[in-house]
Design a protein around this nucleic acid. Structure first.
Length: 602
RNA sequence: GGGGCGGUAGUUAAGUUGGUUAUAACGCCGGCCUGUCACGCCGGAGGUCGCGGGUUCGAGCCCCGUCCGCCCCGCCA
C-alpha cells in the first residue's frame, strides 16, 4: 500500500519526546538537506512545522538510496520510527527533541531547482518581482505560511465573535450600479446591455444601509472591495473589509462589539490582553495634540500650539504666522540632536512630501535656562518664559517650532514627530505596544481645491445633532458622528452614524451643492427606501488586510494578501491585465480608442 | 500626473576616473565525509550587465529613450 493511501499520522510540527518509539508517516517538502556521507539529515516541512529525518543505510537501504537523490522542494512521504535525539536535541526547533529514522520513502514529485531559496528562515533571498512571479513558492516560505495562518484565524474569530454578538453574515453584490464620486470604480461591461456597465463595489455601503431598512438589525460581512486608485505599500486595488452595520446605533454601541472583536483577536492569536475600553479622542483634540487624525499615541512629544503666546514675540518668523506650534524634545532624548542632525531635520520639514514648511525654528535650553540660537536671540524674554511654561520645557530640552498656515504647521509637525520617534528611538521601553484609539467627531466636510465643500466621509454621514443648524450657516465647523479606529498610528477602520431623516439629508445635499435632481440620479433608490421607516443606524468597516499586517508584523500589505498586484496593478504570475482580443470586445460592443503605443503588450 | 531609489551569474549584491579574461556569497553540478542542524572540505559549470539607440579607438560605467520593481506626493469613505 502506498504511503499516500496509508495517510499521514502526524504533521511536521507536532512530534515530541513522548512520541519516541512510535512508527509515523509524514508528508511534506524537502526543506533543507545535510549530507554527511553515510548519513543524511533532511528537514521535512509542511505548514505546521519542520521535522528532522535521518537517512542511513542500516535504517533502510532502499530509503537511503532514495534519500541521496532528494533535493530541495521535492514533495515526499516518509515512514519511520520516532527517535529521541537525546544530547543531540536542537533547542531552536519545536520538534528538536526528536527525529525520524526513515525506513520507507515515497517521492510524490520532484522539484526543479527553485528560482530562490524557499528555506530562507529569517533572511529573504529574493526580490519582490521574483517572489510575485513564483508566488506559490513564495507562499511556501515559513514566514508567509505564518502570515496566512494568522489571517485565517482573523477570519474565523471575526465570524465567531460577531455571530455571537448577534450579527447576521449577509452578502452584497460585487457588480453594482456605477455612482460617480468617491473612489474611481473598476467597470464591468454588460454583454446583454450594449454600452452599459456595472461597477465593482468600492464598498457595500449602500447595501448595508438597505439591510437596516430591511430590518436585519445587525449585519456583518467579510468582503472584497475594489478601488481603481493608485497603489501604495498599504493599498491594493482589491482588499478585504470586515463590514458592519447596526440599527438603533450610537457610536458607543458600535464601539463595544468592535472592541470585543479586537480583544478576541489579540487574545486568541497573540495572547495579548487589550484594555477593557479603548481610549476615545475627538478629531479636534487629535489634531491639536498630534497633528494627525490617526495619531501614534505610544509615545509623547505632543504638539504645543503657542500661536497666542508668540503674538508680538519680536521674532519675525513667528510674528504674523497664522499658526505657530512646537515640539519639546525632552533633555534625556535630546542628546542625539547635534547641530548636524537638526540641520537634516530642517531639510526634512522643508520637503514637500513632509508638508513643505519654510523652515524649522529651534533652540536648545541651557542648564541656566538660556535659549540658544536665533530663536533665543530674537524672542523676547517674557515670551520665552511663557513658552517654557506652556511647553513644560526643562534645561537640556530642544524646542522645535513650525510657523505657517494651520494645515501646513500640523502636517509638518506630525511628520516630524513620527520621524523623531524613529530617529530618537522614542518607543524604547514602551510598556504597551498596542495602543488602540477611537478618533471621533470628524469634520463633516472638507474643502477641495476649488473651495467647495465635499463630504469628508460620505454623504450619508450624520452631523452631530447640535450642529444640524450650522450645515448651511457654517459648514466648516460642523462635526460628524464619524469615527476611525486607530492602532499605533495606523487607521484600521472607520465608520459613522448615518442620516435617517430626509430633512437632514436634504440640508447635507444642499451644503454639498448637490441638487435634488443629482441626488435623485445618484442615490434615488436609497432615498426612496428611506421613505419607508428606516431605523436610526450606523456602522463601521475594518481593513482586514491592515489588521493582518499589524498582527503579523508584515512590512507590506502584499505579505498578507495571497496573490497581490504590483504597484502598477499587475499580477506578475499570470500577467494580468492582458489585451482582450477583438471577438471578445465585439461581444461587449467595445473597441479600443487612442491606445498608447507602449501598452500594446509584449 | 509628479518626485526618488533600483535592475550585473539561478539568487542577493560589489564593480574605483570609461581601459586586459566582469567579482563575491548563497544556490546548482561532481567528489569526499556516520550526528549535522545556515553541516564541513575539495573541484566545476554558470553572464543578452533589463531593452533600444547614441557618444567614444574602447561603455556594466557617460547621454537620450523605453520597460519592469519598490518608496513617496497627488489620488484614495
Amino acid at each position: 500500500m502506498s504511503l499516500l493511501e496509508v495517510g499521514r499520522t502526524h504533521t511536521c510540527g507536532e512530534l515530541r519526546r513522548e512520541h519516541a518509539g512510535a512508527t509515523v508517516v509524514l508528508f511534506g517538502w524537502v526543506h533543507r538537506r545535510r549530507d554527511l556521507g553515510a548519513r543524511i539529515f533532511i528537514q521535512l516541512r509542511d505548514r505546521d512545522g519542520i521535522t528532522q529525518l535521518d537517512f542511513a543505510e542500516e535504517l533502510g537501504a532502499e530509503a537511503y538510496a532514495l534519500g541521496e537523490s532528494l533535493r530541495s522542494e521535492d514533495c515526499i512521504a516518509v515512514r519511520g520510527k520516532v527517535a529521541d535525539r537525546g544530547e543531540n536535541a536542537n533547542a531552536d526547533m519545536a520538534t528538536g527533541e526528536i527525529e525520524i529514522k526513515v525506513t520507507e520513502v515515497e517521492v510524490f514529485s520532484k522539484s526543479q531547482t527553485p528560482p530562490f531559496v524557499v528555506a530562507d528562515d529569517d533572511r529573504l533571498d529574493a526580490g519582490e518581482n521574483l517572489r510575485l512571479q513564483y508566488r506559490y513558492l513564495d507562499l511556501r516560505r515559513p514566514v508567509m505560511q505564518h502570515n496566512f495562518r494568522v489571517r485565517s484565524q482573523i477570519g474565523y474569530l471575526t465570524r465567531k465573535s460577531l455571530a455571537e454578538a448577534g450579527f447576521y453574515e449577509l452578502e452584497t453584490p460585487y457588480m453594482v450600479k456605477y455612482t460617480p464620486g468617491g473612489a474611481r470604480n473598476f467597470l464591468v461591461p454588460s454583454r446583454i446591455h450594449p454600452g452599459q456597465f456595472y461597477a465593482l463595489a468600492e464598498s457595500p455601503q449602500i447595501y448595508k444601509q438597505l439591510f437596516m431598512v430591511s430590518g436585519f438589525d445587525k449585519y456583518f460581512q467579510i468582503t472584497r472591495c475594489f478601488r481603481d486608485e493608485d497603489l501604495r505599500n498599504d493599498r491594493q486595488p482589491e482588499f478585504t473589509q470586515i463590514d458592519v452595520e447596526m440599527s438603533f446605533a450610537t457610536p458607543e454601541r458600535i464601539f463595544a462589539p468592535m472592541e470585543a472583536l479586537m480583544r478576541t483577536l489579540w487574545k486568541e492569536i497573540l495572547d495579548v490582553e487589550l484594555e477593557d475600553t479603548f481610549l476615545r479622542m475627538s478629531w479636534d483634540e487629535a489634531m491639536a495634540r498630534f497633528g494627525s487624525d490617526k495619531p501614534d499615541i505610544r509615545f509623547g512629544l505632543e504638539l504645543n500650539d503657542v500661536t497666542e503666546h508668540v503674538r508680538d514675540s519680536g521674532f519675525k518668523v513667528f510674528d504674523g504666522a497664522e499658526c505657530v506650534s512646537g515640539l519639546c524634545v525632552p533633555a534625556d532624548k535630546a542628546g542625539g540632536l547635534s547641530r548636524k542632525v537638526i540641520d537634516n531635520l530642517t531639510e526634512f520639514v522643508k520637503q514637500r512630501e513632509n508638508g513643505g514648511a519654510k523652515g524649522l525654528a529651534w533652540t536648545r535650553i541651557g542648564e541656566d535656562g538660556t535659549w540658544s540660537g536665533a530663536v533665543g536671540k530674537n524672542v523676547r524674554p517674557e515670551v520665552q518664559a511663557a513658552l517654557t511654561e506652556a511647553m513644560g520645557a526643562q534645561p537640556g530640552c530642544v524646542l522645535m517650532f513650525i510657523a505657517d498656515g494651520w494645515h501646513t504647521t500640523h502636517t509638518v509637525l506630525c511628520n516630524l514627530r513620527l520621524h523623531l520617534r524613529d530617529q530618537l528611538n522614542l518607543l524604547e521601553g514602551n510598556d504597551n505596544p498596542w495602543r488602540f484609539l477611537w478618533v471621533t467627531d470628524f469634520p463633516m466636510f472638507e474643502q477641495n481645491d476649488a473651495g467647495q465643500f465635499v463630504a469628508a466621509h460620505h454623504p450619508f454621514t450624520s452631523p452631530r445633532d447640535e450642529h444640524v443648524d450650522m450645515l448651511v450657516s457654517d459648514p466648516a465647523a460642523v462635526r460628524a458622528k464619524a469615527y476611525d479606529l486607530v492602532l499605533n498610528g495606523n487607521e484600521i477602520g472607520g465608520g459613522s452614524i448615518r442620516i435617517h431623516r430626509s430633512d437632514v439629508q436634504a440640508k447635507v445635499f444642499t451644503a454639498l451643492g448637490l441638487s435634488d435632481e443629482e441626488a435623485q440620479f445618484k442615490f434615488g433608490f436609497l432615498l426612496e427606501a428611506f421613505k419607508y421607516g428606516p431605523p436610526p443606524h450606523g456602522g463601521i468597516a475594518l481593513g482586514l488586510d491592515r489588521v493582518a499586517m499589524l498582527m503579523t508584523g508584515a512590512e507590506s500589505l502584499r505579505d498578507v494578501i495571497a496573490f497581490p498586484k504590483t504597484q502598477r496593478g499587475q499580477d506578475l504570475m499570470t500577467g494580468a491585465p492582458t489585451i482582450a482580443d477583438d471577438p471578445q470586445l465585439a461581444e461587449l460592443y467595445l473597441t479600443h480608442r487612442d491606445l498608447p503605443a507602449s501598452s500594446t503588450d509584449e
